[in-house]
């Protein structure tokens, strides 16, 4: 269920930001949420564990990674895509 993937991803980001998932909106950036580089690496680890997927991400140059981290919505979309790609139909 794609919507479930989105809400679980949002919950993971919300936990890192110490916010309620309902307070996290798709158009917010990680900076808006106060998620720094260490918290981002931890979030990606949590996403990989939650969905049993590999996220292509290099902390040296986050912008150049295939994984779009420009906003909460973009991250949710990218996770949906990876789950579909790596786990078959979600």
């Amino acid at each position: 269920m794609p919507s479930d993937i989105r809400s679980r991803t949002r919950t993971i980001l919300a936990e890192q930001a110490l916010l309620n998932p309902s307070d996290v909106a798709d158009d917010q950036s990680l900076q808006d949420l106060g998620i720094d580089s260490l918290a981002l690496v931890e979030s990606i680890f949590a996403i990989e564990e939650a969905f049993d997927i590999q996220v292509p991400f290099n902390a040296n140059d986050p912008q150049a990674s295939e994984f779009d981290i420009s906003s909460v919505g973009a991250i949710c979309g990218a996770v949906e895509h990876l789950v579909r790609e790596q786990k078959g139909a979600a």
Binding site: V41, I44, F45, F57, N58, A59, N60
Partner: peptide
């Protein structure tokens, strides 16, 4: 590995295109 700062190809200090 967990820190995601390791290079994929080799070590290229100060060079454009370095990956860690």
């Amino acid at each position: 590995e967990g820190l995601r700062v390791m290079a994929r190809d080799t070590c290229r200090p100060f060079s454009l295109g370095r990956t860690g």
